[in-house]
C-alpha cells in the first residue's frame, strides 16, 4: 500500500515536471527560454560526463573539448559543404565519438591517472589548435554558424533540446540498469574483482568513454547551431570545471544528480553573473564541501528523504 501511494506520488511529480517542461515556453520570457536551453545543454554534458566519472570511476578533462569537436565539426561541414544541418550534427557527433574511442583505446588500458593527464593536455591542445587555425575556425573572433530552423524560434530550439535531452537521459538510465551497466558498476567498484569474473575491464571503460564523448559531441553541435556563434571557449577548462561542479554538486553516480546540478548551477550562474567569473570559484568550493560531507551530492541528500525520482 505504502509503495503504491509512493509510486503514484512519483508519477504525479513526474507528470507535473513533464507538463511544466512542455509548457515553459508559453510562460517564460525569451531570456527564460534561453536559460532553459543552456540548462538542457549542461544536463546533456553532466549526465554524459557522469557515465565515465560516476559509473566507471575515471575522470576525463576532455569532455568540454569533445563538445567543441562536435560543434566545430558540424559547423564547418554546414558552412563549407552546405549540407542539411541535421546531417552535419550527426557528423559532428560521430567525429566526437570516434575521437573519444581512439583516445580511450590509447590511454584507458594504462590506468585512471593517465587518462586524466592525457585528456587534460588533449583539451588544451585542442583549444590552441582551434584558436590558431583561424583561417578555418576564425579563432577567438568566433565562427558564425547557421541555425537549425529556417525561421528562428527559441521555442523550437527549446523543444528540440528537451526532446534530445529526455531521450539521452532515459537512454543512459536504461544503459545503467542493463547488464552492461552492471558491468560498468563492477569495474568502478573493483576492477580486479571484475576481471576475475571475466569482465573485460578495458573494453567496458572504452565503451563508456566513447558513448560519453559521443553525447558531448551531440550537445556541442546542437549548442553551436543554437548559439550561431562559437568560440574556443566551448572547450575551455573553465567549461570543464563547471560541468565537473554540476555533476559533483548534483550527485556523482546517480541519474538524477547531474540533472539537478546542471539546472541549479546554470540558473545560479545567471543570477550571480554580475560578480564576474568568481562564480566558478564559488562552485569549486561548494563542490569540495560536497565531496567531503555529502559525496552523493544533492541527489544523495534528497534520496535520504525518500524522494528518489528514478
Amino acid at each position: 500500500m505504502a509503495t503504491k501511494s509512493k509510486r503514484s506520488i512519483k508519477w504525479l511529480i513526474g507528470i507535473s515536471i513533464a507538463l511544466a517542461a512542455l509548457l515553459l515556453p508559453k510562460f517564460a520570457s525569451d531570456y527564460g527560454i534561453h536559460i532553459a536551453i543552456i540548462s538542457l545543454f549542461y544536463v546533456l554534458m553532466s549526465s554524459s560526463w557522469n557515465l565515465v566519472a560516476g559509473f566507471t570511476g575515471q575522470v576525463s578533462f576532455a569532455h568540454a573539448a569533445f563538445a567543441a569537436i562536435g560543434a566545430y565539426a558540424s559547423s564547418l561541414m554546414a558552412i563549407h559543404y552546405n549540407l542539411p544541418i541535421p546531417l552535419t550534427i550527426v557528423f559532428g557527433t560521430c567525429i566526437a565519438g570516434t575521437l573519444g574511442h581512439v583516445l580511450g583505446r590509447l590511454c584507458l588500458p594504462l590506468g585512471g591517472t593517465y587518462l586524466s593527464l592525457v585528456t587534460l593536455s588533449f583539451a588544451e591542445i585542442l583549444r590552441i589548435v582551434i584558436t590558431n587555425e583561424d583561417q578555418w575556425t576564425r579563432g577567438t573572433m568566433g565562427l558564425q554558424v547557421p541555425g537549425i530552423f529556417r525561421d528562428y524560434s527559441k521555442t523550437k530550439y527549446y523543444l528540440l533540446f528537451l526532446a534530445i535531452t529526455v531521450f539521452a537521459v532515459l537512454g543512459l538510465n536504461l544503459l545503467i540498469r542493463s547488464r552492461m551497466g552492471l558491468r560498468f558498476r563492477a569495474v568502478m567498484d573493483d576492477e580486479i574483482a571484475a576481471a576475475s569474473v571475466g569482465v573485460h575491464t578495458t573494453n567496458i571503460r572504452v565503451l563508456a568513454f566513447t558513448l560519453s564523448s559521443l553525447i558531448a559531441g551531440l550537445a556541442g553541435a546542437l549548442y553551436g547551431h543554437y548559439a550561431m556563434l562559437i568560440s574556443p571557449d566551448i572547450g575551455s577548462l573553465a567549461q570543464m570545471f563547471l560541468i565537473l561542479a554540476m555533476t559533483m554538486i548534483g550527485g556523482l553516480g546517480s541519474i538524477e544528480g547531474p540533472i539537478f546540478g546542471a539546472i541549479l548551477l546554470e540558473v545560479l550562474s545567471e543570477q550571480i553573473r554580475s560578480f564576474g567569473e568568481y562564480h566558478l570559484l564559488v562552485f569549486g568550493v561548494i563542490s569540495l564541501l560536497i565531496v567531503r560531507f555529502a559525496p552523493q551530492g544533492l541527489a544523495g541528500l534528497l534520496r535520504r528523504q525518500r524522494w528518489k525520482l528514478f
Binding site: L182, D189, D190, I192, V197, G198
Partner: peptide
C-alpha cells in the same frame, strides 16, 4: 574483494554474465 555498492544478488549476477550473456 566484493563489489561494495552492489547488492549480493548483483555481485553474483555480474559473474553470471560470463557463462550466460543474457540471464
Amino acid at each position: 574483494r566484493p563489489f561494495p555498492t552492489m547488492t549480493c544478488r548483483e555481485n553474483i549476477l555480474v559473474a553470471r554474465l560470463l557463462s550466460t550473456p543474457r540471464p
